[in-house]
């Protein structure tokens, strides 16, 4: 009887879904949930490593948040983040989809190009950034040399607030456009040929076919890629660290770089935690909008 009973308990355990996701939950709790709760705790306190030995931790309430929202450098970094995310994301979507359409149309041995396109994604961001830093260099960089040899005047890419932003966007677009391309290529396989043929019979041109047939079908899948890129670009840090150090002025100091500065250069962990919670709220809101309008739009046919 007892044996029967224990067997049934074991069965119950093994058949419950909780048992199988438990390891994942534990991992998640240790690496994500606990740090998040700790970050929330930090954000309400003065947790300043520089003075922690002498002054300890003091509860501040919302002071960290209020002083951030009143700080001009915080808003400057928000503005930079928006410009950066907008520029890089839109460029990557357009280029990525265009590149996928082009690759999809290739026939025969030319298809091998597809695998070459993905190489940038395999590289470490810091390696990419260091290479770009040399390319952009005013005095001996390759890009300046090419521009000059074509008869134009070369200019200091990373030294000018406007060009520095462009330079950063280019380096990120170069590396991550292939991700959108891969996902789009996959999505394009789903588009049924019959639909395209019937559209053609109805007299639809290339653009109309793309707009009314292809795009609605691939968008939910590509949307996931866009969402991933969005979250990644917002968290963008390594290339800024190597390429510009946030300069010139505040031109390339994004919110993540700003948080890094506050937290690990100035050692004000409480304030940095508060800023990252504001960032998190921003990401959640925009992600929800992206999901609503791109990943699962109300399909109108």
């Amino acid at each position: 009887m007892d044996k029967e009973r224990s067997k049934s308990i074991l069965n119950k355990i093994f058949s419950s879904s909780i048992f199988y996701i438990l390891p994942a939950i534990i991992m998640l709790a240790l690496t994500t949930i606990f740090p998040f709760i700790f970050a929330v705790y930090l954000s309400f306190n003065r947790y300043d490593l520089r003075f922690i030995q002498r002054e300890g931790v003091t509860f501040l309430g919302l002071t960290n948040f209020i002083s951030l929202l009143n700080s001009s450098s915080f808003w400057a970094s928000v503005e930079t983040t928006i410009i950066y995310v907008g520029g890089a994301l839109i460029a990557q979507i357009i280029l990525g989809i265009a590149l996928a359409m082009f690759l999809d149309s290739l026939k025969g041995p030319l298809q091998k190009i597809k695998s070459i396109i993905f190489i940038p994604m395999m590289l470490t961001p810091v390696v990419v950034a260091t290479t770009f830093r040399l390319l952009y260099n005013y005095d001996f960089g390759l890009i300046g040399y090419i521009i000059e040899s074509m008869g134009f005047i070369k200019f200091p890419w990373l030294a000018h607030p406007f060009y520095a932003r462009i330079a950063l966007i280019i380096s990120d677009v170069w590396q991550w456009t292939p991700l959108i391309t891969v996902i789009t290529l996959g999505a394009l396989q789903v588009v049924p040929d019959t639909l395209l043929e019937s559209a053609e019979l109805d007299g639809a041109g290339w653009l109309q076919k793309f707009r009314y047939v292809v795009l609605p079908i691939i968008m939910p899948i590509v949307g996931v890629g866009i969402l991933l890129r969005f979250m990644d670009i917002v968290k963008f840090f390594d290339k800024i660290y190597v390429l510009t150090g946030g300069g010139p002025g505040m031109a390339t100091e994004t919110l993540t770089y700003h948080i890094y500065q506050i937290g690990f250069n100035f050692m004000r962990l409480g304030r940095a935690a508060a800023a990252s919670i504001l960032l998190l709220i921003g990401i959640i809101i925009i992600s929800m909008l992206l999901v609503k309008f791109i990943v699962q739009p109300d399909v109108e046919v």
């Binding site: 260099n137 005095d139 200019f155 200091p156 890419w157 000018h160």
Partner: peptide, 12 residues
């Protein structure tokens, strides 16, 4: 100085 100096660190 070189117009590129606004990007120069110790190495450059």
């Amino acid at each position: 100085a070189s117009p590129g100096i606004t990007d120069w660190d110790w190495d450059e």
